[in-house]
Design a protein around this nucleic acid. Structure first.
Lengths: 346, 346
DNA sequence: CTGAAAGCGCTTACAG
DNA sequence: CTGAAAGCGCTTACAG
């Protein structure tokens, strides 16, 4: 009566032997996609418990050519990732959407060149069915390598250059455009723009929104681009703006961090915010709330962006061709003290 | 001259055909573990580029019986996870240690019953070689199921009941013991303990540390256990303590959150902190810093805990039997305003 | 140094 | 309804 089992973990053959059927029948039972007699079913069910059988994921993946897993790869300093609420909400949103379709999200952190290579091989080697790539900097070899893999991919926030990988992003242009309009309507008329690095897509789009809102009133003398997305670069840029146009009564910065740099310089020079100059940012990050005064900014629905990212990979996994596709998610202006009272406040 | 390639992604057979060798030789070349002639090597190398070959992870895993991946499973509200700096530092530490050994850490979030079942199957099915389990609540079926899998596991923070799964934890008893001693030396003599839920291991250990430090001076009348790790439970417990022993001049709470509840009640009753009563917590979480006044607490090196967690799974993957093993990581008292001036401050 | 062959643990037409 | 057989893409003794 001793059913010899193999040494390692039990396989479908062990179950078959105990149940007294062929392993093909066990497989059919497991996959519920073909008829199995009631009698065989109960025998198999019991055998599964008896030998404590769990199907091998790798064997299944090999024959099915799918893993039902999607990687969420972060090309960022891990600390920054966990700190940035926008990024973590994105991850939570994507996880929920994937989970709902019974896909497992696998969060991976690139924290070294070695890990970048390993993750690229993993993804190129079919360890997952798709990949959501979060990378802030362009021309990043690691990001490029992952995107060039045959595995369906989507990038968050930044469309990769020279690549047809679809991307999902917040409405950079629209957010700033709306903000500019609101400031204008609230009585600010000499509105400067403190942009991000001039060649970065996000900076370009945000500048475009500013320009569009102003229309013919747009004045290039009131625009300056910071060299980096850094506090110090924001300060330098603000100094240039003040030197060029001392009469400005509002500054629209391309990020909360740059706006914080602007606040520093304005304080140095004795300009009051918002009484003398209104300041605003983008992102609605912690910087916006911690600033003195708290910053008007553009808030993005990161959870939703995460969900859309998931949808875009999933559709590609289902065979849809989404080359070059871009999805823009609307955002929302959050009006705070740094812009003074809002004229049209209801 | 047209080398017919199969339709899907190229396989080792395609490489072999193009290079004019057998696929076994290609495999040997890839694994560098047997001699391959220089001539064959260059041909293969070129063929790999030509067909753009990347080895299949699933096929490899199936024959090698290993995936070189370790799951980091979080049984927590995802938001809480990303918010809690202790948890994210743990993840970063584990990721770094695993990565250094060329293992890929796969971060997975349990956010529903469905996902709990899916992840359990994944792990039981050999999708990863090991699992680090972060679960705060005991008797959690999902945690138990994962731990009962044949896959090597380790739990963070909490040893699972009735389980021999190894665990790594901060020195609960030692931290509170040291803290109690320091308070005593600083002139506090009627020191109460506001413990966590009476049957939770962490609460039991912390209480033990308090008791040990006090020795014969220990007085059970000065001890109360909160019903939950919640703010409100901390308040209720503090009220009971004050009712039982109004003369207390220090309260050692089992967590920062419980300590915050204690602060609320003391403020209500007009007792000044630290002038009338010293208050301290455990965790060095945001609660500790945001409290008024900031809380003395026990700080844990979460990054290091993460590294140790990785080491414990890795050793098991390497075949070591670590059943029942527990690793206790030392921690450190952080003295802040809620305890007044420290007598032995250097 | 290198092929042919078996096998890792599954799924799935194909005949019965 | 169910077995036998082939195949998913690799690795690895075993002979040469």
């Amino acid at each position: 009566m001793d059913n010899q089992l193999s040494v390692g973990r039990p396989t479908i053959l062990d179950v078959a032997r105990v149940a007294g059927v062929s392993h093909a029948t066990v497989s059919r039972y497991l996959n519920k996609r073909a008829y199995v007699s009631e009698q065989a079913a109960t025998a198999i069910d019991q055998a599964i418990r008896e030998v404590n059988y769990v199907p091998s994921r790798t064997a299944r993946s090999l024959v099915n050519r799918q893993t039902r897993a999607v990687a969420f790869v972060v090309r960022e300093s891990p600390t920054l990732f966990f700190t940035d609420p926008n990024l973590s909400k994105m991850a939570i949103g994507a996880n929920a959407a994937l989970s709902a379709q019974n896909y497992q999200m696998l969060f991976m952190i690139i924290d070294s060149e070695q890990s970048a290579a390993r993750i690229t091989e993993l993804i190129g080697g079919g360890f997952v069915d798709g990949v959501i790539l979060v990378a802030m900097s362009l021309n990043d070899p690691a990001a490029q390598a992952i995107a060039n893999t045959p595995t369906p991919a989507v990038t968050a926030s930044v469309p990769l250059p020279d690549s047809l990988v679809p991307h999902v992003d917040t409405d950079n242009a629209g957010g700033i455009e709306t903000l500019t309009r609101l400031l204008h309507e609230s009585g600010f008329h000499t509105i400067a723009h403190l942009g991000g690095p001039e060649h970065e897509p996000a900076a370009i789009l945000r500048h475009a929104g500013y320009k569009k809102a102003l229309g013919p009133a747009y004045d290039p003398a009131l625009v300056d681009f910071a060299n980096q997305w850094e506090l110090e670069a924001g300060r330098a840029s603000m100094r240039r703006l003040l030197a060029a146009g001392p009469e400005i009564d509002a500054v629209i910065a391309s990020s909360d961090l740059l706006a914080t740099g602007a606040l520093d310089v304005l304080a140095e020079q004795g300009r009051r915010v918002p009484e003398d100059v209104s300041v605003s940012g983008f992102d609605d990050s912690d910087w916006a709330l911690r600033a003195h005064p708290p910053l008007t900014t553009v808030h993005q629905d990161s959870y939703r962006i995460g969900e859309e990212l998931a949808e875009v990979v999933l559709r590609q996994i289902d065979g849809e061709d989404l080359q070059g596709f871009g999805r823009i998610i609307p955002n929302e202006v959050v009006w705070r003290e740094s812009s003074g009272p809002r004229s049209d406040a209801s």
